[in-house]
Design a binder for these strands. Structure first.
Lengths: 360, 360
DNA sequence: CTGAAAGCGCTAACAC
DNA sequence: GTGTTAGCGCTTTCAG
């Protein structure tokens, strides 16, 4: 015995070793079977052109026979690419983000990438740690619907220091250097509020989101629209929430005000849905007494208590576009463009704001 | 120059090499800085006890300074464990599965595992390929809400051949060897149907799921309950659907029958929600003329057009329990127990079936 | 308590 | 076309 000190369980001193039963087939096993080098097999597996037709088919045959599956961990280490991209969203319960995820996955899969979906639960520090884990896992790129406050710095600096391309979706952090795909939040706020004003509402309350760009931007749009219409912005008419449960609570507080609002604009659909529940429970009628508008056009908004008017943002499209941009950034090692793709938000008028008007 | 042929870009012939600027910090960099071996640093990183207190703190300090992050790809390859588990669900748009995902992630994270969520979109072959990718990525374990038909064989055999532990959730494939966490589907079907019968319905239709265990089991429970009550099972009263869109279509077909059903039991909440939309559109009142019950108690079922009566299955709990079982199976290399954890399904009575009764 | 040697399974770059 | 060499960044086993 040459080496008493051999580290691992499989083979002694680089020799052959038949093939421990249960262990997965390796390139080496196939190479040995066929008396070719590991490289040749590797090339066949990856579809390289420079392999003799005959050799190739022998290898292919054996691969099929043994049902060889490349070990992606080893491959990633050697190639320094994982073909994994990370997607971080704040709330998978909001189908808006589930749809983005779907869009991302469906665009990435054909390109050979796997998508790892993470849920930050609207928690900035949890999000940061998720991102660091993804980075440690050596993802090739990142798509983030970030809950970081608008002026966040550290975590993005970290990503950039690592040279990992990323694209922001739905929540635009103030990182001009990073590409963004999503709607203009102020436009969303304006669109929803203007619609309510047009429908005759004068005491429009807003359930604003957390302190991240989407929340802040929509609030701003709401205020702009009020101002443009010469309506006074009542401070008490702005509450905070993040989802349906907190939206419900927020609406209850709004309903206890005097005078009671005649409309509520929720910064996202779950918040608006929760608000509707509170409104109906309190005995008001939607839309006759109180109108409601949300944002996101989530999957179930048409099936809600009262079909919810909302601002559509093309969730699936956001995911697909973000994926496309990211894929490009990954391949072209060039510094990323940093442009923004603004989705045009469109109003979807349903019953909660009075429904489509028959005539002008 | 000894070697004109050095493969990689970083170092020549195992020597030192300062540290190319942009590249991430490695164990080796820290070791060199401190004049200790890579092993020592590795041990500190992993918290091994056998390191001198002084050495340890020097290493720790440097780690912090350089913000060292272990490379999990390399670590996984060497340790032959990735600390990744895969979760495959059929439909992230159904918040039932999003909640399971949440439960899994929250139970796995503290144990050091990352969860990779995949969406099979109710497609058995897509699911199979997702599973194979996860296997190729060397996941340590799998949690599957499988859409394979009840007698599926191949893909599970593959998983078992690789020796990767897995647990089934919500959809029980006939694999007695695999642990299962979820409700008894026949019980769900019975519970929902019996409730409808108690509420006086006699023409109970069913929107059955696809041909997987959950769909089949609930259908069976539905039929059993009808039989037990002496009601005839009308073949036309059974339609198929998988989500809200197809549920809507299915309900429209049911509504065109004569006599029109006086109740619809949807195999999951989205299907039931879609059915409600169709029913209301057709001008029927819920629950007065037609009662509706779903299953899954999805996040928004209380906020739907009519608050939806449903069968709760403790989605988050399913995820947590499955995670616990999987974690145990991963660590104890023992063959997995193969038991089933049956969640007791409970009826959640809301307005769509008439609401809670005031008196008996 | 510390470290040297060997190796995880695969790929990059070059030589034959 | 094919094979060789070196190496990805880390952990394992065992010797000092």
């Amino acid at each position: 015995m040459k080496s008493g000190a051999n580290g691992y369980r499989r083979g002694a001193a680089g020799a052959s070793m038949p093939n421990p039963p249960n262990a997965p087939v390796r390139l080496k096993d196939i190479a040995q079977d066929l008396n070719v080098s590991v490289m040749t097999v590797s090339k066949v597996v990856r579809g390289c052109a420079d392999v003799g037709a005959q050799t190739r088919s022998r290898v292919l045959a054996r691969i099929k026979e043994l049902n060889y599956q490349p070990n992606w961990v080893a491959r990633s280490l050697a190639a320094r690419r994982t073909f994994i991209v990370g997607l971080v969203v704040p709330d998978l319960m909001n189908t808006f983000f589930a749809e983005i995820a779907k869009g991302v996955a469906s665009a990435m899969r054909p390109l050979g990438y796997d998508v790892v979906i993470c849920n930050s639960e609207e928690d900035a520090s949890l999000e940061a740690s998720e991102i660091e884990r993804l980075l440690a896992r050596q993802v090739d790129g990142l798509i983030l619907a970030s809950v970081q406050p608008p002026d966040a710095e550290e975590i993005f600096a970290k990503i950039e220091a690592r040279g990992v391309p990323y694209v922001l979706v739905d929540r635009r952090v103030s990182r001009p250097s990073a590409p963004y795909v999503g709607a203009d939040d102020e436009a969303i706020g304006r669109l929803a509020t203007e619609h309510l004003i047009e429908r005759g509402c004068r005491r429009i309350a807003h359930i604003a989101g957390p302190h991240h760009p989407a929340g802040v931007g929509r609030l701003k749009g709401y205020r702009e629209a009020l101002a443009a219409a010469g309506l006074k912005a009542v401070e008490e008419y702005v509450e905070r929430a993040a989802d349906d449960a907190t939206g419900y609570q927020a609406a209850r507080r709004l309903l206890s005000l005097d005078p009671v609002p005649d409309a509520i604009f929720g910064y996202n659909d779950p918040a608006a849905a929760g608000a509707m529940k509170a409104i109906l429970e309190a005995g008001y009628r939607i839309p006759e007494q109180i109108k409601v508008v949300g944002a996101g056009n989530m999957h179930y908004s048409d099936l809600l208590r009262v079909p919810l008017s909302t601002v559509d943002q093309r969730s699936t499209g956001i995911g697909e576009q973000a994926a496309g941009i990211l894929a490009k950034a990954i391949t072209s090692k060039r510094r990323r463009a940093g442009g923004a793709i603004l989705i045009e938000p469109t109003l979807v008028i349903r019953e909660s704001s009075g429904g489509p008007l028959k005539s002008t």
